[in-house]
Design a protein around this nucleic acid. Structure first.
Lengths: 200, 200
DNA sequence: ACCTGAACACCGTTCAAGT
DNA sequence: ACCTGAACACCGTTCAAGT
């Protein structure tokens, strides 16, 4: 039955995919607010109104790209945690490092996920679910690490601090703010150390 | 001689001022990227091209509003530090608290200063100077506080951590992210505690 | 010195139409 | 089922013109 999906495409191999790639490329160059439906269509080689066959409006297109970002983020953090082993201190350090690494390695996605022109989580159910899953991964990891230690502060408060610290490092770096203009690797490992000092 | 400035205005009391107020109002409602030259002009009650008598282009108008934000920020932080007394731990806590308080009390300014649609610091010499002054206030305060303590880490690194933590708290709160959706006062005092734990 | 109005090339979205 | 083209109300910016 799934073979029916193999029908020859109408005109474009996968226009939806091409539009999302164009969206990411434009967001990377000029920020989420600089993305234009008409230019994404131009880049994909179709007419200005073709995107409306795949997304109800511009915000839905941005939301779809943002959702991909959350999936990618989730995956990268999982990988980092798998590589980190069992020690709570190492795991939390890896969490912070992975956060900053992701933001600097996938700035287009990160800007679409959190930047100011970015769509609200409520823009689509898929985006909302993906964002929640990423949040649960952060909170769950901190909770399990806290369980293995003598917790001086509640896990929710620690999550908030850790998240804020990593997010601040990432956004200030992306905005090329002074003191944050080092290379990605340095900033990521500085974040690891800062997180670990945070819990010591 | 200064009396010559009292000449009756041409048509509008202070159009530049009115345009900046409109810019801030629009940025507060829809983010920095949602600010429109034409709508700012409409709000101020002038034609679409009148703003060009006061700003070379739209970005210059945004930059001027952003610059005002940095002046205001500088002033608020100074006040908080004056009230904080001499104890280094109290001063650094107040610094973090004042940062978050400012962001939540003046979200329009904050978004124009740091949001994604915001103008780059290089957009005007005045903006650049105001941003630098605010940065120097942060760095200088941390340095002096560090001088009075046994510094485990360099002042620049501590500034980076403190700034990132406060900035993350502020931006995640403004984006109404989960875990950051408490009232302004709670988040500000949570930031104070987090900063103080950071240096203990 | 300060402002207006028409014009140009853009934008998001709708709608009738084509294959 | 998927795409085009004309149209509408917007946008930033320029330019000639008005007081």
């Amino acid at each position: 039955m799934a073979a029916a999906r193999k029908r020859r495409p109408y005109h474009h191999g996968d226009l939806r995919r091409a539009l999302l790639d164009a969206t990411l490329a434009l967001a990377g160059e000029r920020g989420a607010a600089g993305v234009t439906l008409r230019e994404a269509a131009r880049v994909a080689g179709v007419s200005q109104t073709a995107p409306y066959r795949h997304f109800p409006d511009k915000q839905a297109m941005l939301a779809a790209a943002s959702e991909e970002g959350f999936h990618l983020f989730h995956q990268q953090v999982q990988q980092a945690l798998t590589a980190a082993g069992d020690d709570p201190r190492a795991r939390l350090g890896s969490l912070g490092e992975a956060y900053v690494r992701f933001a600097l390695a996938y700035p287009s996605h990160f800007r679409l996920m959190y930047g100011q022109g970015s769509p609200p989580k409520s823009a689509s159910p898929g985006l909302q679910a993906a964002a929640r899953a990423s949040f649960q991964l952060l909170l769950g990891t901190v909770k399990r690490c806290q369980g293995a230690r003598a917790p001086r502060i509640p896990a929710q408060e620690l999550t908030r601090r850790l998240w804020a610290l990593a997010h601040g490092m990432a956004t200030l770096a992306l905005e090329k703010q002074i003191l944050f203009d080092t290379d990605a690797a340095s900033l990521a490992s500085a974040t690891r150390k800062a997180v670990q000092d945070l819990i010591d």
